[in-house]
Design a protein around this nucleic acid. Structure first.
Length: 431
DNA sequence: TGAGATGATTCGCT
DNA sequence: AGCGAATCATCTCA
C-alpha cells in the first residue's frame, strides 16, 4: 500500500468520514487517480489504526497531518464535498414551507395561542362565543372566563414547551457546530457543510415543534367543543333565583325593563350572569304578554309577597318616626321603586275582577294590608323621592298598551299612581 | 314517554 | 345595543 492510499484510509478513519460524507470511496479513488484497491485492505488499515494505543494514534495522526500530500488531498476532498453539499442544498432549498405547519401556525394564531398576548386569547374566546352564536352583548360570563382561563393555560404550556425546544435546539446546534469545527482540523468540513448540518438539526427539531403545535391545536379544539357544549346545555335556575326574578318582574309590571345596574344586582342575587338576566326578562315579557291569564295567579301571589315586604318597610319607616321618607336608605337602588310599585301592584292585582284561582285567602291578606298599602302610596306621592323614583335610570315608566306592548310613558306610571279610586283601578295584569 | 316549561339562540327591527 | 318574536334544545313531571 502506498502512502497516499494509506493516508486516505487514515483520514477517513480518523475523521469518522462515512460514504455519505465523502461519497463512494471508489469514485473518490478514481477522482484522485488512484489504482483500484480492495476495500478490505482499507478496512484493515482502519482497524489497525483503531487498535493502536492513544499515543500511537496521536503520533500517527500527527504524521498524517504533517504529510506533504495532506494539503492537496484536503483541498480535493473539500471540493468534492462542496459539490455534494451544494447539490443537496439545491434540492432542499427548493422545498416549499410545509403546508401543515402553516395551517397549524395560522390556527394557533387565530386561537390566540401563538402570536402577541391578547388578554389571554380573549379575542379568540369572543370569536368562539360568536361562532357558538352567543347572544348579542354577551357579557363575558362564567363560561367565557372559564374558556379564557383554560386557553391561557394552554398558551402558557405551549410557550414554555416551545421555549424548551428552542433552547434544546440551540444548545444542540452549538454542540454540533463545535464538534464539526473541532473535526475540521482533521477532516475537510466546509462552512457550508456546517450550515447543512445546522439545517438538518433544525428540521429535526421543527418536526418536534410540529407535534407540539398539533397537540396544542387538538387541546384547543377539545376545549372549544366542551365550551360550546356547555353553552348548549341548560339548567333551570334554582327556586330562589326564579323567585327573585319574578318578584322584580311583578313588582315592576308597569315597566319590566331592569336597567343595567338592576340587572347586575339581580344577577348577583341569583348567582347568574347579566346575559341570563336579560334572557330571562326577554322570555318573561314575551310569555307574559302572550298569555296574561295564565300568569295572573303567579302575578297575584308575587304581588302579595312584595306587598308584605313593602308594608313591613313602611311599618319600619313609621316606627322610625319618619313616615314621609320611606325611601331613605334605598335611594338609587331598585328596591326603591320595588316597594311602591309592589304595593300598588298588590292591590291592583288583587282587585276582585282580577282574582281567579288565587282565591279568597289572597283577598283577605290584601284587605288586611290595604291600610298599609294606602299609607305607602301617600308616602310615595308625598316624598321628594317620588321624582327620583319615576325618573331614575332604574325606572323608565312604560305601560302595556292595548296593542300588547309596553310603551314609554313619561307620566307617573299607572301602577304607582292609579288613576281611579281603589277598586276601580286599571291593572297591567288585566291586559 | 310525551307535553309543557324554560333557558338559550337567532333574526329582524328601531 | 336592546328589544320582540320565533324557534331550538333541554329539563321536568305526570
Amino acid at each position: 500500500m502506498d502512502d497516499q492510499t494509506r493516508m486516505l484510509a487514515g483520514l477517513a478513519g480518523l475523521g469518522g468520514l462515512s460514504q455519505g460524507d465523502v461519497g463512494d470511496p471508489d469514485s473518490l479513488r478514481k477522482q484522485l487517480g488512484q489504482p483500484q484497491q480492495d476495500i478490505g485492505d482499507i478496512l484493515q488499515q482502519i482497524m489497525a489504526i483503531t487498535d493502536e494505543s492513544l499515543d500511537e494514534a496521536q503520533a500517527r495522526k500527527h504524521a498524517l497531518n504533517c504529510h506533504r500530500m495532506k494539503p492537496a488531498l484536503f483541498s480535493v476532498l473539500c471540493e468534492i464535498k462542496e459539490k455534494t453539499v451544494l447539490s443537496i442544498r439545491g434540492i432542499q432549498d427548493e422545498d416549499p414551507p410545509d403546508p401543515q405547519i402553516m395551517r397549524l401556525d395560522n390556527m394557533l394564531l387565530a386561537e390566540g395561542v401563538s402570536g402577541p398576548e391578547k388578554g389571554g386569547g380573549s379575542a379568540a374566546a369572543a370569536a368562539a362565543a360568536a361562532a357558538a352564536g352567543g347572544s348579542p352583548g354577551a357579557d363575558g360570563g362564567i363560561e367565557h372566563s372559564d374558556y379564557r382561563a383554560k386557553l391561557a393555560q394552554i398558551r402558557q404550556i405551549y410557550h414554555s414547551e416551545l421555549e424548551k425546544y428552542e433552547q434544546a435546539c440551540s444548545e444542540f446546534t452549538n454542540h454540533v457546530m463545535n464538534l464539526l469545527r473541532e473535526q475540521s482540523r482533521t477532516r475537510p468540513i466546509s462552512p457550508k457543510e456546517i450550515e447543512r448540518m445546522v439545517a438538518i438539526i433544525h428540521r429535526k427539531f421543527s418536526s418536534i415543534q410540529m407535534q407540539l403545535k398539533q397537540s396544542t391545536c387538538e387541546a384547543v379544539m377539545i376545549l372549544r367543543s366542551r365550551f360550546l357544549d356547555a353553552r348548549r346545555k341548560r339548567r333551570n335556575f334554582n327556586k330562589q333565583a326564579t323567585e327573585v326574578l319574578n318578584e322584580y318582574f311583578y313588582s315592576h309590571l308597569s315597566n319590566p325593563y331592569p336597567s343595567e345596574e338592576a340587572k347586575e344586582e339581580l344577577a348577583k342575587k341569583c348567582a347568574i350572569t347579566v346575559s341570563q338576566v336579560s334572557n330571562w326578562f326577554g322570555n318573561k315579557r314575551i310569555r307574559y304578554k302572550k298569555n296574561i291569564g295564565k300568569f295572573q295567579e303567579e302575578a297575584n301571589l308575587y304581588a302579595v309577597k312584595t306587598a308584605v315586604d313593602a308594608a313591613s318597610v313602611s311599618a319600619q319607616a313609621s316606627q322610625a318616626n319618619s313616615p314621609a321618607t320611606p325611601t331613605s336608605g334605598s335611594s338609587g337602588s331598585y328596591s326603591l321603586s320595588h316597594a311602591g310599585d309592589a304595593a300598588a301592584a298588590a292591590y291592583l292585582g288583587l282587585h276582585p275582577s282580577n282574582l281567579n284561582g288565587a282565591g279568597e285567602a289572597v283577598l283577605n291578606i290584601a284587605s288586611s294590608l290595604q291600610p298599609q298599602v294606602d299609607t305607602l302610596h301617600r308616602a310615595t306621592h308625598l316624598t321628594a323621592g317620588y321624582e327620583e323614583l319615576t325618573t331614575s335610570s332604574l325606572y323608565v315608566p312604560r305601560r302595556l298598551d292595548p296593542s300588547n306592548s309596553w310603551q314609554d310613558n313619561t307620566q307617573p306610571c299607572s301602577v304607582t299612581s292609579p288613576p281611579g279610586p281603589p277598586g276601580s283601578v286599571h291593572s297591567d295584569t288585566s291586559n
